[in-house]
């Protein structure tokens, strides 16, 4: 299977690493040989029909920061769209940054790949939260596969889990903690009794929260995931503007203490059901499935036949997120 890897940041490098680690295993078990035939970042691209060496790619990227420095195969200033025209491939793996204004450049790249009859795997929430039905329509019209397990909950199985493991159940609602950064901040505030501002700073120093934490703390990231789950699992047709939103920036240590006295914790919860799409701080029972700590993500699916089913896992991380992308690649391969 020849893949084009668009974006070579934390997730893109994770993909290269898991391919390097797992290719023999995949070959033995499924007869799958994943070849990276092209990779791009903001510097340009590296292209090789016979496949690039993932370890060398990682080494170059860590040394110079540019994939275009790959020996002989690197090309500077080549934009991702033209790369797709220059190389033979089977599947686009799209891992550029999330853009919640217009979903670009990811959206154009994915639609082009689909029009060229290529399968698409992505971890990018932007285009999914803004143009889900458009993308699905393109995939269907071109009869290609479109998978995005990594976009919600990183390594925590949820989309494929609902679709493949619970295919006979109607999923009535999903309640989940879909953002690791805010879960870390709230867990820490609960343990230490510290203020929101201090805990956010600490999370930034640890590299858990970004310099501009808006997307996480205002609940926008969780709202994007809410949209993806509503569309892909509950069969709705909604976008980001349909989600009611309250973040965690108003949460105080006093409110957490009040909750604790009654045996509750405060968590940023995404609620997904046919009548409510909402991200807001909520009270959850200590010791319940919602009480996961640190950067962990979780989700409880309420079903008609199996009652409640809960999944927990790592919502972010280079290798963890790449693991979800690899599951999508293997699933596509197995379906051929």
């Amino acid at each position: 299977m020849k893949i084009c890897l668009m974006g070579f940041g934390a997730v893109g490098q994770g993909v290269a690493r898991v391919i390097s680690l797992k290719n023999d295993h995949l070959n033995d078990k499924y007869g799958l040989d994943v070849k990276i035939v092209a990779v791009t970042d903001t510097s340009g691209a590296a292209i090789a029909e016979e496949g690039l060496d993932p370890d060398l790619l990682l080494e170059i990227k860590s040394k110079t920061g540019k994939v275009c420095d790959y020996p002989e195969k690197g090309i500077s200033d080549l934009d991702a769209l033209s790369v797709l025209d220059q190389v033979e491939y089977d599947c686009l793996v799209e891992v550029t940054p999330t853009n919640i204004q217009d979903g670009e450049p990811a959206k154009t790249l994915m639609i082009k790949a689909m029009a060229d009859k290529k399968d698409v795997v992505t971890s990018n929430k932007g285009p999914l939260a803004l143009s889900f039905s458009d993308l699905i329509k393109n995939a269907q019209e071109n009869d290609v596969q479109f998978k995005f397990e990594a976009s919600v909950g990183g390594a925590m199985p949820i989309i494929n889990f609902a679709q493949q493991t619970l295919p006979g159940c109607d999923i009535e609602s999903i309640f989940g903690i879909l953002n690791g950064t805010t879960n870390f901040i709230l867990s820490r505030m609960t343990r230490e009794g510290s203020s929101y501002e201090n805990t956010l700073q600490e999370a930034q120093q640890m590299g858990i929260a970004e310099t501009d934490p808006t997307q996480d703390v205002e609940g926008i990231d969780a709202a994007c995931k809410t949209v993806i789950l509503a569309n892909s699992i509950l069969g709705m047709d909604v976008t980001l503007k349909d989600v009611e939103l309250d973040g965690i920036s108003r949460i105080t240590s006093e409110s957490i203490a009040l909750a604790k006295k009654e045996g509750f914790l405060i968590k940023l919860i995404a609620e997904v059901s046919s009548h409510t799409l909402k991200v807001s701080p909520r009270l959850v029972r200590e010791g319940s499935p919602y009480s996961v700590e640190g950067t962990l993500n979780m989700a409880t699916l309420k079903t008609d036949l199996a009652d409640e089913v809960t999944v927990v896992g790592r919502g972010a991380g280079s290798i963890e997120t790449a693991a979800a992308i690899l599951s999508d690649l293997v699933n596509i391969w197995k379906s051929k």
Binding site: R250, T252, E254, S255, A257, L258, A259, K261, E262
Partner: peptide, 17 residues
């Protein structure tokens, strides 16, 4: 009703059962 004042009045919290 349980009220907790914060230094900043805008951020007081109340628990209501």
């Amino acid at each position: 009703l349980d009220l907790k004042m914060a230094e900043e009045p805008l951020e007081s919290s109340a628990k209501i059962i």
